[in-house]
Design a binder for these strands. Sequence first.
DNA 1: AGTAGGCCACTTTTT
DNA 2: GTGGCCTACT
Length: 788
Amino acid sequence: MPAGKEYNLCSMDPRSLLNKQQLDAVTVEGGATLVLAGPGSGKTRVLTHRIAYLINELGIPPYRILAVTFTNKAAGEMKKRLEEMVPEGAKAVWLGTFHSICVKILRREANLLPVDANFVIYDVDDQVALIKTIIQDLNLNEKMYRPSSIQATISHAKNDMIMPRDYKVRSSRDARIQEIYERYQQSLRACNALDFDDLLLAALNLLNEYPEVREKYASRFEHILVDEFQDTNQVQYELVKMLSGVHHNLFVVGDEDQSIYRWRGADYRNVLRFEEDFTDTQKILLEQNYRSTQKVLDLARAVIDRNQYRTPKALFTERGGGTQVRFYNAEDDRDEADYVVRTILAEKKKGGNPASFAIMYRMNSQSRLLEEAFMKAGMSYRLVGAQRFYGRREVKDVIAYLRLVENPKDEISIRRVINVPARKIGDKSVEKLAEVARLMESNMGAVLLELGSRGAESEVWAALERTAAPLYQFARLMAGWVAIKDQVSLPDLFDRILLDIEYQNYIQDGSEEEVIDRWGNVQELRRQAFEFEESGLSDLLANLALVSDQDTLVDKPDSPTLLTLHAAKGLEFDRVFIIGLDDGLLPHNRSIGEEEEMEEERRLFYVGITRARDQLYLVRAERRNMFGHYDNQMPSRFLQDVPDDLVNVDATPRSSSQRGYDRWESGSYRRERRSSFSQRKESYFDEWDEEATSSHAWESAQASRESRRYSGGHAAILPQQADTPQREKRIGVTYKAGMKVKHPTFGEGMILNVQLESDGEQLLDVFFADSKEKKKLAASYIKLEILD
DNA sequence: AGTAGGCCACTTTTT
DNA sequence: GTGGCCTACT
């Protein structure tokens, strides 16, 4: 579109039709703008059009615009659409996730950093591996100081901008953690590595400590736009504040109701903070939904309205009412998966496209039965995330090799691959190597390179004693790769490494029980090496570290999509299944009892619901296989808020195919004859609420539940129910809150809360004195000694 | 140094 | 039902 012409996108592209609110947002003057955008209200379109407007209409040079998205995929899509609107220039816009933008800045300013420009990025696995070596160095017990929990603690501290020296020490355990944290930071430096949180933090520190750098970027970015603002954390908020410090043109889009990353440090209160920090904030509400039918929206609203901490919104749609939401009460998790598959098959028979379906769940592990069911039916599917490609052993191995060539100081990668494939280098040899490195005030990588290039002539040969020979094998290879790294192309380097280590033989030795196409995965990685031939190893590695699950989502014809509710954010599908609507799964057990977390679980459900354009399917299972045995499940408490008149209940195949009258009437099939949803609900809930016995069982169940809900503690929500025939577990001891107990590994603790499951299982919240940690324990699986 | 077998704890969600 | 970790053996 030629500049100077009146801003009229309608003439350009039918997709560009904007409503009044959207147009207001797109053309709003500079300053601080907060766009509160409900689901399906076209916020991506608003963001893209605003950037185009800034360039085409206001003449802002593209390189002076910074736009932050939540995933790389979102950035890629936005860039593509921008290229259509701003053919030249779109490329120059800084567009990416917070993490990738920070990497870009850090690489440019690397001379001011505590690490070199070729730093590597440590993911969670690397972090845990590093923390493990530190815990071992400090002779601490890994049971008491669980590396993964320490990792989470450190990550939270970083998100709150708390450095090791600021870490609050209130106990001896805290002191230990502080020490681990401190060493962890030192080790990262020594490995020339930054972890995920560091990427943001290091960028923030850079801007804080060097006014001239801050000035440079803050003057550069005339306009800053941030998507999914409700999921920004402290550090990201500060970054944005600082970067907009010169021009003050900050345009953020968000929706509190879709904030689902609290556990990762995100704080939807940043939306409120924004209005406080930036006076004269212009607030624009996008309330028209273009995605879903009225029925879907009504349901979404009924669910989200229960949350306390939110601004009410008036979402509306001009789409018609739509079809009823369908509900299926599966016998067990197998039946649940079968229902999904047979429903999709039935639609396919009627001419529907399986690719229009998505199946969403709370936990990745729930995908397994679905996959089996699809495979049995001979249907293809696409799976988002789960056992992520980049999490596969062989992929991580090869990446580790590439990483240590780029950055020989990367000790975690050295430790990972030094004996993969096996080279007779065991723990003893690795420790010897570490010791020699320490004595020489060097690092393992440098020692290896020295050994590899000079062999027995090097002084390290003698120092390494009998481990020198096996280590030399590896060191020679490594020195060879580092020597050619800048002379050959990236794919050549890749091939050379694989050839040298005979990796194909190693992973195809046939000993694998499962048929996993490991070599195929390596080939996929090789394809990416080709893609990054121009930009180089460093960029390839950064890219590999920062891909998200959603980024791996590629179209697959005729295939339904399987994904977690988290991964579903920002996506939409014609037909959506939300499965596993069981109490304990959604909401997840670990959130039950924490008010804020329960609200987040509810938002997660809301996000799932609002992904659906036309048809929504809600599914739960009465019994579910967990830890290898079946557990009876309660219906999700969120189902209580599903209005009856929006829902049709699907019958089980048994009830529709089996006409045997007697069978109908007897035993457990009886309930299945009831077809109205509210009757259904009666039968679920009266099983877990003894007050609900009248003919208005549902209402009374709901009423009593509500009075409990507002009277506080969650323990009351799940009734201490009387025996039912379902009960399977026989428990000798009845635990009560306040009891002091002793656990064989965790030591003494106090029971904070007892939650009784339908099968008689008691879920205990126990606070352990030694570790100062709260744990959830299932009474029947552990040995607890009761202390008086 | 490598591995088989037994014991344990365990299941959120991910840039 | 699984995976990680320890131990005992080769």
